[in-house]
């Protein structure tokens, strides 16, 4: 059954869809095949209606000009904006099955492992990293691990510090994990364990502000997922260079599944682990 108030898809010519898909891929890295035609048509028609555009061509012109931040609205309509625990867990598996082994092999005794979640929104990602490590990494007790969560949105950070979540945010966690790490509140929501809340540092950050980013250094792994697709070319490059400086040599950066650092900057090398593709700052930069 069709959703109420959602316009039925109107005819957008196949070549117009192709034109749109090529633009979307070049601009964001998001790739859609013909099998997603209904999904594309539906989202496109929603945006055409929302912007009051009279045709695909009129909408496409508006989109290319990024009038009224239409790129951001479009990306939002094509992506899952909801954040929840253990989202895109392939990279979490990669963390404990590949990245950390390489990282600890370079560590001096007593040197901490530093992991950064940016943007961290309301905290689901940094807490997920903490939970995942405690549940899945056998060496977790052998190292000091520092997890930092940063975001530009101070309201989101305040919520992250409180660590209170509804059912949907916890949908991918097992009842056992929920029972061991969360306290059910009177209103039916769940608050994450106080020890976990107090072990994670939250801070405000603007990814493209070089001075801001200079406050964050020496990370071994950075989770920077689904944010660079929103930036224009200049901002993406600035963010990539800032992230490069935030990483230790040999450190890894994890992007969203539709993002590719290779399309943004040549500074990092591609690392293919069995569970995920991530990007690495060269251990020894000869240039």
């Amino acid at each position: 059954m069709a959703e109420r108030d959602t316009p039925e898809p109107s005819a957008i010519a196949p070549d117009e869809v192709q034109r749109f898909c090529e633009f979307l891929y070049r601009r964001t890295g998001m790739s859609f095949s013909e099998s997603k035609r209904y999904f594309i048509d539906r989202r496109l028609n929603e945006r055409i209606a929302a912007t009051g555009s009279k045709s695909f061509q009129a909408y496409f012109s508006l989109l290319r000009a990024d009038a009224e931040h239409e790129i951001e609205h479009l990306i939002n309509s094509f992506t899952v904006n909801e954040t929840y625990f253990y989202r895109e867990d392939a990279q979490l598996r990669c963390l404990t099955s590949g990245m950390l082994d390489a990282i600890v092999s370079r560590k001096a005794p007593g040197e901490p492992i530093r992991i950064w979640s940016v943007p961290c929104s309301t905290g689901e990602e940094p807490y997920s990293i903490a939970l995942w490590l405690m549940e899945n990494w056998p060496q977790v007790d052998n190292f000091n691990i520092e997890i930092v969560g940063s975001d530009i949105d101070t309201k989101a950070l305040k919520a992250a510090v409180e660590g209170i979540y509804g059912d949907r945010a916890l949908m991918r966690l097992s009842p056992d994990i929920i029972a061991r790490y969360f306290t059910r509140l009177d209103d039916g929501r769940y608050q994450i364990d106080e020890g976990l809340r107090e072990s994670i540092e939250f801070s405000r950050i603007n990814l493209i502000d070089t001075a801001d980013m200079a406050r964050q250094r020496d990370f071994d792994v950075v989770f920077c997922r689904n944010v660079l697709i929103y930036f224009d070319d200049a901002s993406r490059r600035a963010a990539a260079e800032n992230l490069y400086d935030c990483l230790r040599p040999g450190g890894y950066i994890c992007l969203g599944h539709s993002e590719s650092m290779s399309r943004i900057s040549p500074l990092f090398r591609v690392c293919r682990f069995p569970d995920a593709i991530v990007y690495q700052k060269p251990e020894a930069d000869h240039g």
């Binding site: 901490p112 530093r114 903490a130």
Partner: peptide, 17 residues
């Protein structure tokens, strides 16, 4: 607990160039 709160890593903002 193996998780420790990050501290002492924040540097002063560099002066404007």
């Amino acid at each position: 607990m193996p998780l420790i709160k990050a501290g002492g890593k924040a540097a002063d903002k560099p002066a404007k160039g």
